[in-house]
Design a protein around this nucleic acid. Structure first.
Lengths: 337, 337
DNA sequence: CTTGGCACTCGGGAACACAGAGTGCTAGAC
DNA sequence: GTCTAGCACTCTGTGTTCCCGAGTGCCAAG
């Protein structure tokens, strides 16, 4: 049905359309990509491709434009991820290496990705639920207040001020801290509830109200932050592009954590290095946009996702290369710290 | 030069133009705002106003549009800040009261403000330099690593992992923590360098290398975060409006911390409740936009600024009311915590 | 100082023609 | 059977012209 030359024609159409943003006609095609056949032949192939739904023409007597299905075929079979240049790799490395803490890593990553792809970049903060406890700290503030600080192996820090039911001396606080750390150190966040379930019973009766208060806040913190934080950058890159769905919708989606989450895709348990590409109508919302995303994380388990969002008419090979490269470097950085 | 009626005409022009987004002519003006004079009279007044530079006409045969100078006069002398409705006040209060930490307060504030004004809201994180130290914590991690946690009175928490020059037992760490807190508790962040300057000398010789390392990181943290964090929300509200300077420029500015900072205005030492309004060309950059900003903070000292950014053609009384109200509520929340 | 009248200007929409790009189809060449 | 050349056809986008209407500026009278 689709011989090699027809595929070559489709690839040429996608490439030309992406670079010129204008429907591409048979003559220009035959000339620019030395196909060694005449425009008439190209026209026949185009008719076949259109028949199959890979391309379409906006108006009669206009050139052809790829459909979502056409882009899909292009991404799956006709293109290769384009690796970054050496200079770009080095730039990424040095830029990310300068980060001082997790916040900084995420901020730098999202900006970097936006600049690299000239599109909107989206980065999800590493998921708490897959991290482990590195340290729990109880800081006496004054009166009956203590601050609970939870540090995870991904460098994330959560803190809460707790109002205790009674005045507690610092030494007791120190003891509680030791107990908490003894049972939680290195524990996966998902297992924390189980680990601390019998803790009050193992302590003297007089400590139980205090411990109960602290634990309830601790558990609450875990649950609350389950709705993950997502940041984006590069909205200015939307200004040029035209979206079928309207710029407003895109901007709104970017500020809706929930929608962004869905767009980035479910956090898969696959190896994090696989790239997800959702093209146009394949997206749950924002059917006029495409998304290239992948997971990242230290080692083999995927901690969170990152990707870019742009018009359906985007340079997929380049974008995919950038996303993949950035994800790898971030993973490295996180593993090292 | 400008009698009362001319001022009334200017006010009417601003109000009409803001609500309709179309140049306003003399007939419509005379009808809608019962000025009790004929269109011809209005025309004379308009000619005078144009002569003075308060209004202008886009084309020879079109109605008049306010100039930046016209808006300025309107804001300064012809309008009153419009207070929020009771329902709005209650909504703000409950929404902000639900925040769990400083991050949350800022995030909620910026979203609230964007929704309230239907414009882009911008909020600066409370400045470190005006805060005071509530607590310093040293958390032994393992080997030669400790985590330094700095908690300020505004609820802000900074943390850094420090690589020590030698292995240090936990008891020595605890001692150092006590020493640090003793000299820094309640100390203004700006004074921290002075406070700790002679600290190494007051300690045994064997502790000095460790203390020096810790202090250098502490001071670095203070300096680094001097470039303040700013967040924005409501970019989708830009989609409808048209900016003379181009949407792209506005979006770019929003992602440039430095530019945003300049736009919000210098942190003044004035009482925080004064509203700053910069109209069109009065802005350092983005001359096509207007900015309504104010300071906020607990008590009398201004901790940071917040505001909204929108087209020059905005509803100043309403916007000013919203900004002022939100700033007050945030200040309350911060003072309480 | 205000008002009604009047001539003038100019933007924007409707109608129209036209050039150019691109197509589909058919008949012939390899 | 596949490719090619030629040709008639169909659009879109653009430039032109025309005209209406909104709005103005000015002047003379109240």
């Amino acid at each position: 049905m689709l011989d090699d030359r027809k595929l070559a024609v489709l690839r040429a159409i996608v490439e030309d359309y992406v670079s010129t943003n204008e429907p591409v006609g048979s003559r220009a095609l035959a000339e620019r990509h030395n196909l060694k056949v005449s425009p008439a032949t190209v026209r026949n192939d185009m008719a076949a491709l259109e028949e199959e739904g890979y391309i379409t023409q906006p108006h009669t007597s206009a050139g052809r434009v790829p459909t979502d299905k056409g882009y899909r075929l292009f991404v799956d079979r006709l293109s290769q991820v384009k690796p970054l240049s050496g200079a770009e790799r080095r730039a990424i490395e040095t830029f990310l290496a300068g980060a001082v803490d997790l916040d900084d890593v995420v901020t730098r990553t999202v900006r970097l990705l936006a600049q690299l792809t000239r599109q909107v970049a989206v980065v999800q903060y590493p998921t708490l639920t897959r991290s482990t406890v590195r340290h729990v700290e109880l800081v006496p503030l004054h009166d009956r207040r203590v601050m609970l600080v939870l540090i995870t192996n991904t460098g994330r820090v959560e803190q809460r001020v707790i109002e205790l039911p009674e005045v507690v001396e610092d030494t007791r606080i120190a003891h509680l801290r030791a107990v908490l750390n003894a049972s939680l150190d290195g524990c996966g966040l998902l297992n924390v509830p189980d680990q601390v379930a019998d803790l009050p019973e193992r302590l003297p009766v007089e400590d139980r109200p205090v411990v109960a208060t602290i634990l309830s806040v601790l558990l609450e913190t875990l649950v609350e932050r389950h709705d993950e934080k997502i940041v984006f950058a590069g909205a200015a890159n939307l200004a040029g592009a035209d979206f079928s769905t309207g710029l407003r919708d895109v901007l709104e989606a970017l500020e809706e954590q929930v929608v962004l989450m869905r767009l980035l895709g479910e956090t898969s348990t696959d190896t994090p290095s696989t790239l997800t590409v959702r093209i146009g109508s394949e997206n749950p919302f924002l059917r006029g946009t495409s998304i290239v995303a992948t997971g990242y994380g230290s080692g083999d388990n995927e901690l969170a996702r990152l990707g870019v969002l742009g018009p359906t008419r985007m340079d997929y090979p380049v974008t995919m290369g950038a996303v993949r490269a950035v994800a790898r470097y971030v993973s490295q950085i996180l593993a090292a710290s």
